[in-house]
C-alpha cells in the first residue's frame, strides 16, 4: 500500500531548475529519509509534498488522492520545521491546539486532545509555558506534538535535529524512532547527516542536484551503491575513491574501497604507503597514508593498532568488498 507517490515532479525558480523529474513511491508506515549535500533540493522537494511550494509540473498523490493542487492544510500532512516555528505569543497548550482552534473545534475536545498529546510527549507539566521558557529539546517535542494532534497521514520533518547538541540529538533520534514505531505513520525526513539517515530510515533517498541518485534500505546503499556519489555519501569515514590510471588498472571508471575494508600490515599488501596522520577514536583507529599514485589512502584499524607517524605500512583490500563503478 503506497502512501505518497511523486510522478515526474519538477520545480523551477525562474530559469533555475531545482528539482528535475523526480519519481518516487513511499509505502504506508515507512520512515523515508531524503539525504544529499546542501542545496541539492531536499527542502524544496519536502515543501512541494507539503504544498508550501507549488510544483512546476508533475503529480503528487497522498493516500490515493491527487493533492497536486490542494492547499497545505488539506493534504493530510503535518510538518516539523528546523526552527520549530512555535508561535511565540502562545503557550504550549495553545501552540499544540492552534490547528484545532482554527478549525473551530469545541473547547473541551481541544483540551482533552492537547492533554493526551502532551502526556505522550512528557510535556504535561509545561503546558502553560511560552516557547521562550523551554529548552531546545522541549521545543522540539512541542513542535512534534503540534504535528501529532493533527493525526496526519504523513509526517514531514525538515532537519528537525540540526539545532540540538550532539547528546540531545542522539536521544531525539531514538525518541523519533520510537514514535514512528508507536504511531505506525508514514514519515518523510530530510537531513544531510548520514548517521541520522542510516540509523532511522527504512528507506533512504539520495538526492544530488535535483535528481534521485539512488533509493534503497540503509544496508543496500552501504553494500551496493550505484554511483561514486552515493558511495561517498554513505559511510564514515568516506570510501576511498580513485579514478584515472588506478581505476583503469582495475578495469573500471572509478574504483572504491571503504576504510573498514582495508587490512593494514607491516609485512605486505597491495599498496605500500607512509603514515601521515593517525586519529585514535578509542574503539577504532583511523590511519591516513600517503601513496605516490593513490595520493591518500584512509584505513580503519582496531583501536589498539600499533602504528606511528612516518611508518611505512601496507594496505590490502578485502576480497569481495571492492567497488567498481562505470
Amino acid at each position: 500500500m503506497t502512501s505518497v507517490v511523486l510522478k515526474d515532479i519538477r520545480k523551477s525558480f525562474g530559469s533555475l531548475e531545482v528539482i528535475k523529474a523526480i519519481d518516487l513511491e513511499v509505502e504506508k508506515g515507512e520512515f523515508c529519509v531524503f539525504v544529499g549535500p546542501s542545496g541539492c533540493g531536499k527542502s524544496t522537494l519536502l515543501r512541494m509534498i507539503s504544498g508550501l511550494e507549488t510544483s512546476t509540473s508533475g503529480q503528487i498523490v497522498i493516500d490515493g488522492e491527487d493533492v497536486t493542487h490542494a492547499e497545505p492544510s488539506k493534504r493530510g500532512i503535518a510538518m516539523v520545521f528546523q526552527s520549530y516555528a512555535l508561535y511565540p505569543h502562545l503557550t504550549v497548550r495553545e501552540n499544540i491546539g492552534f490547528g484545532l482552534s482554527l478549525a473551530g473545534r469545541p473547547k473541551s475536545e481541544i483540551a482533552t486532545k492537547v492533554e493526551k498529546t502532551a502526556e505522550s510527549l512528557q510535556l504535561a507539566h509545561l503546558l502553560d509555558r511560552k516557547p521562550k521558557a523551554l529548552s531546545g529539546g522541549q521545543r522540539q517535542r512541542v513542535a512534534i506534538g503540534r504535528a501529532i494532534i493533527r493525526n496526519p497521514k504523513v509526517f514531514l520533518f525538515d532537519e528537525p535535529l540540526s539545532n540540538l547538541d550532539a547528546a540531545l540529538r542522539s536521544q531525539m533520534r531514538m525518541e523519533l524512532t520510537d514514535l514512528h514505531a508507536k504511531l505506525g505513520a508514514t514519515m518523510i525526513y530530510v537531513t544531510h547527516d548520514q548517521v541520522e539517515a542510516m540509523t532511522m530510515a527504512n528507506k533512504i533517498v539520495v538526492l544530488n542536484a535535483g535528481r534521485i541518485e539512488q533509493v534503497g534500505s540503509p544496508m543496500e546503499l552501504y553494500n551496493n551503491p550505484v554511483s561514486p556519489f552515493v558511495a561517498g555519501f554513505i559511510g564514515s569515514p568516506k570510501m576511498n575513491l580513485y579514478e584515472g590510471e588506478v581505476a583503469a588498472a582495475e578495469r573500471c571508471g572509478t574504483y572504491g574501497i571503504r576504510p573498514e575494508h582495508l587490512i593494514l600490515s607491516k609485512s605486505g599488501g597491495k599498496w605500500r604507503g607512509q603514515v601521515r596522520h593517525i586519529e585514535r577514536l578509542g574503539a577504532d583507529t583511523v590511519v591516513y597514508l600517503d601513496h605516490p599514485e593513490l595520493k591518500q589512502i584512509v584505513a580503519r584499524a582496531p583501536g589498539d593498532f600499533e602504528v606511528a607517524s612516518g611508518d611505512e605500512i601496507y594496505a590490502m583490500p578485502m576480497s569481495g568488498k571492492e567497488h567498481r563503478f562505470g
Binding site: P72, S73, A78, M79, F81, A85, Y87, F98, L102, R146
Partner: peptide, 8 residues
C-alpha cells in the same frame, strides 16, 4: 507556513 499547514 506552520499556520498555513495548521489550516489558517
Amino acid at each position: 507556513e506552520a499556520a498555513l499547514i495548521d489550516g489558517a
